[in-house]
Design a protein around this nucleic acid. Sequence first.
DNA 1: TGCTCCATGTAACACGTTACATGATTGC
DNA 2: GCAATCATGTAACGTGTTACATGGAGCA
Lengths: 176, 176
Amino acid sequence: MALSHALLTSLLEKSSSGYDLARRFDKSIGFFWHATHQQIYRELARMELAGWIASSSAPDAGKTRKRIYCVLPLGQVELLRWAAEPSAPMDLRDELMVRLRADAALGSLGLAPELERRIALHQSQLALYRDIEQRDFAASPSLPRAAQIHHMMLKKGILYEENSIAWAREMLELLR
Amino acid sequence: MALSHALLTSLLEKSSSGYDLARRFDKSIGFFWHATHQQIYRELARMELAGWIASSSAPDAGKTRKRIYCVLPLGQVELLRWAAEPSAPMDLRDELMVRLRADAALGSLGLAPELERRIALHQSQLALYRDIEQRDFAASPSLPRAAQIHHMMLKKGILYEENSIAWAREMLELLR
DNA sequence: TGCTCCATGTAACACGTTACATGATTGC
DNA sequence: GCAATCATGTAACGTGTTACATGGAGCA
């Protein structure tokens, strides 16, 4: 179970509500790990039961149900334990690859527009990453260790997008 | 549902038993899509119920239960329908990224050996891909369309492994 | 005889997705 | 007053993982 540990890490960086976590998961860690709000609420409930985190009504809750979660010592111990485990590299499960292979088996299926759409998506993601890099990591080598590690995650994303664009362009030429 | 369509594609290329599919999924398509034999048997049963594929006792079955599956016209129609759908780029869900972020939040967790292990894994995968490329695609530009598409899948894998190695080396330097 | 590989399957559970529901707050 | 956003949740379902079970075939 790794979503829970991603949430623990995110909560360590900043105690938050489930809603805020869901939105942050669309940024930072979320560049590499998407989760719906339902998954997040489910995991938060489990982790609270397990004694990894505690929640309290948010200071700015008013009459809403807003709750803030923070990591308990037991949660930090669990995160340290988990971090020491080895892990398998992610798999590259991309539906587009299957479609292209179907195209190879059945003859031209007109996948060029889909490839163009993908290229555009990768380009806008790349532009977003580069903006963040300019804004937050311009002075990288002199930044604190934690910021440098965060910069490396961003670079991983940038590399991936650049690659994907280059590859898709070559694929597009082949389809024509 | 995309595993079923990956299986359809694989069966179009060659009618096979579930067991053979599981093993082929550890090669070719399986470079980009891992599935356990249980998932595969489950999907095959569903697809046969849906009329996408048909099975018959294998010629070499002897007294075993070995069955060969082949794609029916309905299955091919379904694959064509599905191939025309747009699809989202895969997400980069890598546990190592979460571990590194935990390292950034909590201080040095000693992740260097894990990074070294990862680099070794990527290198052996890369070596495997390059062997296949030499063996099957040395004369790429003169090969038939289908083979060229297969070559592009392999190149995608090669690019990914090269990238991962370069990135992990830089990360390793930062951790030291 | 016992070992490994071939070949298929059941069951239970963990994780992820989609649809739907509820009620408060903010801005026009 | 109405719509959008904030914030949390239930339910159902689809997909992926793990453990376990069964029996034939080939080999030493």
